[in-house]
Design a protein around this nucleic acid. Structure first.
Length: 427
RNA sequence: GUGGCUGUAGCUCAAAGGUAGAGCGCUGGACUGUGGAUCCAGUGGCUGCGGGUUCGACUCCCGCCAGCCACCCCA
C-alpha cells in the first residue's frame, strides 16, 4: 500500500461511526437540556492565541502544537484544545457585548503532536462547554452536573470526579510561596523536571507522580489551606451544591491542570481501569482569560471531554453498543432475475426512496444467488425480486430475509406493503 | 522526546538459516430464479521499507517507517 493514515490518526468506519454519532447526539441532547447553544470555531488559529492562553511554558505549547506558516507567512496552529478559540470568538463576534450569561458547547477534532498510545492520538475529538459571565459557584456546579449527566446518559459507570481549587491571582502566589518554602530543603533531591517547575510553575509540582519525588512531597501544605476568603467560600459553596445535586466527588488538593488559565475551581473525571490515560475529561474556571484577551473582566467556566476515551470506557465496561446496522435502518435490496428491462428497477427504487425508505440494488448482472448473498452481507431485512415472471405478471416478490417468508404482491402495492412491514416488524 | 514488545495473504496466526503454510474470508460449483448450514474446488504474498552478513535470510545485524504499551503529559 502506498499511503497510510498519518501517525496518531485513524479512520472511523461506518460501524464505528454510528457509535460516534450516537455519542454526539447524546452530548447535544444534554447540552440542549442545559440551555447551551452550539459554537463552531476554526480548526486552526493564530499561534499566539494558544501560546498566550494555555501558557508559554506548558507542555502543550512547548512541544505538542501542530504549528505551520501559511503562504502569507502567518504562523498558524491546529487547535490543541477548545477554550482559547471559543474565548476569541466570544470577544470577536460581539457575544461578549450582549451581556448576561452565555452558554456555549462545541464538538470536533483537536490536534496535539504526541507519541500515540492507548487513549492518546494526534487527532482526537472532544466535546466541551464554556459558560461566560457567571461568577458564582452555581455554574461551576451546573457545568459539572452536565458532564456527569452526559456520562450517565451514555450508560457509563464507575467514573470518578475529583475537584480542587487553585485559588485566584491574589491567593495563589501566597500558596506558591509557601510551597517553595516547604520544598526548599529538598529541592535538589527532586528530579530535574520538578526543579524546573520549582522555579517557574511551582503549582504543577503537585502533579508529579514519580515515587522518588513523591516521597518528598508527602508533607507539603495543601493549597486549600491558603485560599483567601472569597475563594474558600466559592469552593465550599460548590461542594454544598454538588452534595445537593447528589453528585459524588472527591476533593483532591493535588489536582492541577496542565493549562495555565485556570483559576479557582478545577476538576477532572477519570475512569479507573482505562490504562495510563484515564482522564475522560476535565475543566475548571478561568476568570482571567477574557480580560487577558482584551475583553472586560468576565468570569468563565468550562470543560472538555475526550470522545475516544469515553467510547473506550464504554467498551471496557461492556455497555450496550448503540451501533445501527443497515438492517435496523430498514435498507431494502432490489434483485433481478433473468433479462429485465433496464429501467424498471431504478424506477422502483426511486419510488421507494421518495417515500422515505432506503434501498440499494445489484450493480452487476449477477446470478440471483449471488445477489441474495450480497443482500445478506449488507444486512438487508427485505429483498424485492424483480424477475421475468414478475414483470409478466405485474408483480414483485418480497422476501423477509430474517424469516425467509416470501410473498408475491402487485407492483403498485410495494410501497404500502414495505411501509406496513417496517412498522409491524421492526428490528 | 525516551524505553519495551511487535510488523508474514483482506483478517487471525504458523514457518527460526535451505523453494512461504493453515484457518477464516473472498469467488465459483454441488443447488441453471433464492442468502445463512454442509461438502468440493479456485483465489490469494516484493514476509513493513532500505541496507548488511551468508553459497543461501521471514529467520541474524544496522537504519527508517508503522502499530501496541509504558514514561512524560493529558482528552
Amino acid at each position: 500500500m502506498k499511503f497510510s493514515a498519518p501517525r496518531g490518526t485513524r479512520d472511523i468506519l461506518p460501524e464505528e461511526a454510528s457509535r460516534w454519532r450516537w455519542l454526539e447526539e447524546v452530548f447535544r441532547e444534554q447540552c440542549r437540556l442545559y440551555g447551551f447553544g452550539e459554537i463552531r470555531t476554526p480548526i486552526f488559529e493564530e499561534t499566539g492565541l494558544f501560546a498566550r492562553s494555555i501558557g508559554e511554558e506548558t507542555e502543550i505549547v512547548t512541544k505538542q502544537m501542530y504549528t505551520f506558516s501559511d503562504q502569507g507567512g502567518r504562523s498558524l496552529t491546529l487547535r490543541p484544545e477548545g477554550t482559547a478559540g471559543v474565548v476569541r470568538a466570544y470577544l470577536q463576534s460581539g457575544l461578549a457585548n450582549q451581556g448576561g450569561v452565555q452558554r456555549l458547547f462545541y464538538f470536533g477534532p483537536f490536534f496535539r503532536y504526541e507519541r500515540p498510545q492507548k487513549g492518546r492520538f494526534r487527532q482526537f475529538y472532544q466535546g466541551g462547554v464554556e459558560v461566560f459571565g457567571a461568577e458564582g459557584p452555581q455554574l461551576d456546579a451546573e457545568v459539572i452536573a452536565l458532564a456527569m449527566d452526559f456520562l450517565n446518559a451514555l450508560g457509563l459507570e464507575g467514573a470518578r470526579l475529583r475537584i480542587n481549587s487553585t485559588g485566584c491571582k491574589t491567593c495563589r502566589p501566597v500558596y506558591e510561596k509557601a510551597l517553595r518554602k516547604a520544598l526548599a530543603p529538598v529541592v535538589d533531591k527532586l528530579c530535574s523536571w520538578c526543579q524546573e517547575r520549582y522555579k517557574g510553575n511551582t503549582l504543577r509540582i503537585l502533579d508529579e507522580k514519580r515515587p522518588d519525588c513523591r516521597r518528598y512531597l508527602k508533607d507539603i501544605p495543601s493549597i486549600l489551606d491558603s485560599l483567601d476568603k472569597e475563594c474558600r467560600e466559592h469552593f465550599e459553596d460548590l461542594r454544598v451544591l454538588l452534595n445537593g445535586l447528589g453528585i459524588p466527588y472527591e476533593v483532591e488538593s493535588d489536582v492541577v491542570r496542565g493549562l495555565d488559565y485556570y483559576t479557582r475551581t478545577v476538576f477532572e473525571i477519570n475512569q479507573p481501569g482505562l490504562g495510563a490515560q484515564d482522564a475522560l475529561g476535565g475543566g475548571g474556571r478561568y476568570d482571567g482569560l477574557v480580560e487577558e484577551f482584551g475583553g472586560k473582566p468576565t468570569p468563565a467556566v468550562g470543560w472538555g471531554m475526550g470522545v475516544e476515551r469515553i467510547l473506550d470506557a464504554l467498551e471496557t465496561n461492556r455497555q450496550p453498543q448503540a451501533g445501527k446496522g443497515p438492517a435496523q435502518e430498514g435498507l431494502v435490496y432490489f434483485a433481478t432475475a433473468g433479462s429485465v428491462d433496464m429501467e424498471i428497477v431504478p424506477n422502483l427504487i426511486s419510488e421507494v426512496r421518495a417515500s422515505g425508505m432506503a434501498a440499494i440494488s445489484a450493480s452487476l448482472d449477477k446470478a440471483l444467488k449471488a445477489q441474495m448473498k450480497e443482500a445478506s452481507r449488507q444486512c438487508c431485512r427485505w429483498v424485492v425480486i424483480v424477475g421475468e415472471d414478475e414483470i409478466a405478471a405485474g408483480t414483485v416478490t418480497l422476501r423477509d430475509m430474517e424469516s425467509g417468508e416470501q410473498q408475491n404482491i402487485k407492483r403498485e402495492k410495494l410501497i404500502d406493503t414495505l411501509k406496513q412491514l417496517m412498522e409491524q416488524k421492526p428490528l
